[in-house]
Design a protein around this nucleic acid. Structure first.
Lengths: 343, 343
DNA sequence: GAACCGATTTTGAACGATCAAATTCTGTGC
DNA sequence: GCACAGAATTTGATCGTTCAAAATCGGTTC
């Protein structure tokens, strides 16, 4: 296996200088047609590939984005994060960018990691996942002027001391609003909401969609809360439905809770009670439950636009006084008829 | 923000030469104690971080491993792959390695991607996921002498023309064997197996564990097959159980099928019929089903050992005539009692 | 005290690309 | 035919690190 060819080799083969080869690669429009063709032929013939490290060293750009792969769902469910990272990798590749993973157990550790990677010139930007109230990471990144975009809204307590940062997220309220309207139009007016305990940004956002749709329609329905647990959801729903049999449908904050609710309804002899979940997981599909599907692919596209501009091929530094840019993706309601009941 | 310090700056601050600083970083043992301390102090004081690109350029090593993140489960289920990639990132980091993602829709495209990354000096090695019969990727990697390890066995058709490659995998047969023995010991002797259609390496491997355990015990039980679908599993199991009510327990090739089987049994008024799944997904946990848990963290550790040796901090090139090294991780049976029935 | 050896440290060169500035073309106007 | 402007191309320097070889240091030996 011969040594890999360099710009110099290509230049020699094409009878031009190093820099012209470089220009053909990076600014083709300033090279005259015949020259460009000769160089391109030489590139193909020699099988030349630019050496990334040399380019990085000279340009001080790594064309790489860092992402932390969550070990456990931290606000963003496993499948959603998976699809997001995959889409991000794919679209980043189309724009000449790479995605580098890093691991961290705590926000502090994550900051250390990012510091290493940024100072070492390994990444140009970061995509944060699972943002929370008073996130220490965002402040640090802003102070260090590291370009970043968060997947998830800044659930800030409205102090406004810090300038907002760029983010992309799924419009949870729009999802539950659509789900609620669907049930109002097809099942009846008494639609319940089964959510997480208040306080989580994501959960409250989804609850809001139900609230608004109910208010718009002048309808009323009970609101139940429980932890993210199929078993708990089942017990809670069974009790609540027994007490309040007039419920015509249930909008749930997640598929797990929806499955719990569905099992409870089935157990009470009401397998046809419409239940809508959130995330459109394979389990919901298998049981024939309707669900709100997030579209992480679109979030990924939004993240890249925020990071690189609508068409750019390099990370853009945005100044703090820029408008807080964001992208809010509207999810899609997947309507299904429940499979034949168990009991 | 001042320019980042270089080895030169550190050298000046510590009153030594560039190379000595480099030695402190890469071969501390050849530097005299007092000198080393002085240099280390200067590193800390200046907040020096080596510039990765420069190092890569000089050493021709990127200390980076490429991994393709599957969009959909291709033989390896989503959660398992997730945990695997996460563990890989974490352990690679401990060894001074990074994990770079790449996207590809087809094996051919994947080969192109890997070619770009390897020739560009962006990655030193590749971890393949979802290997299949007659995998075109492995041959290409071997020809190009790109170090790689597969997560998943080479399900080769025994031609032996190609030297085997390194791989790490979960011992599916051991998992179903344990599950079968558990049911034989606690439920009865007529244990059924619910698997995928024969022909998939993974599925056949898991079936083998059941077969062997049954043969060892001199027991007999029916063997059913269906696609990976909860709904199909439920229908099939319902029909089969109605016809063959003597079944004492069911070992399943996946959690989805196990849940289908459990729902079928519950529907027939036998909610307590022991069913064991595979993958230990949250759904199985929620329903209180026993399941075989893969340990992708151990697979990740095995992959790194195969790639870098038991303690090394750089990728080791192995020659084709080396023994085909592999790591087979024994999964763990998680025993649960089913939650109270639905019907 | 000179010669010598191994351990430690320093110096010069190189990795392969792009930037910035200098140079050479090309075509136009008079 | 000559000066000139803009386009196209080339040249020299540089990014920050490590390799390879040369130089220096410290301690023994005779």
């Amino acid at each position: 296996m011969a040594k890999a060819p360099t710009v110099q080799d290509v230049a020699r083969a094409a009878g031009v200088s190093r820099q012209t080869v470089s220009n053909v690669l990076n600014a083709p429009d300033i090279v005259r047609e015949p020259t460009r063709e000769r160089v391109q032929a030489a590139i193909v013939e020699l099988g030349y590939r630019p050496h990334a490290a040399a380019r990085r060293l000279r340009t001080r750009r790594s064309s790489t984005i860092g992402v932390r792969l969550d070990p456990y769902a931290g606000g963003i469910s496993g499948v959603v994060l998976d699809r997001f990272v995959h889409a991000l990798t794919e679209r980043a590749g189309d724009r000449g960018m790479r995605v580098l993973l890093y691991a961290a157990r705590t926000p502090g550790e994550e900051i250390d990691r990012i510091g290493d990677l940024v100072d070492g010139g390994e990444i140009d930007a970061v995509v944060l996942t699972g943002t929370s109230h008073e996130d220490t990471r965002t402040a640090w990144l802003q102070d260090r002027a590291v370009p970043f975009v968060a997947f998830g809204r800044p659930w800030r307590s409205g102090d406004g001391a810090r300038p907002a940062h760029a983010w992309a997220d799924v419009d949870g309220a729009a999802g539950t609003r659509a789900a609620t309207r669907h049930l109002l139009g097809t099942a009846g007016s008494r639609i319940a909401f089964l959510g997480w305990p208040t306080g989580s940004g994501t959960g409250d956002d989804r609850a809001r969609g139900w609230l608004e749709a109910m208010a718009d329609a002048g309808a009323e329905g009970p609101r139940w809360h429980t932890e993210e647990s199929l078993g708990l959801a089942r017990e809670l729903t069974a009790a609540a439905l027994a007490e309040d049999p007039g419920v015509d449908g249930i909008v749930c904050v997640s598929d797990s809770l929806a499955i719990g609710a569905h099992l409870a309804a089935t157990g009470l002899g009401r397998p046809e009670l419409p239940v809508v979940g959130f995330d459109n997981t394979p389990a919901a599909e298998a049981l024939g439950l309707s669900s709100v599907e997030q579209l992480p692919e679109q979030v990924a596209a939004g993240v890249l636009d925020l990071l690189m501009g609508p068409t750019g091929s390099a990370v853009v530094h945005r100044s703090p006084q820029d408008d807080p840019a964001y992208v809010l993706v509207e999810p899609r309601l997947v309507v299904r008829a429940p499979a034949d009941p168990v009991g």
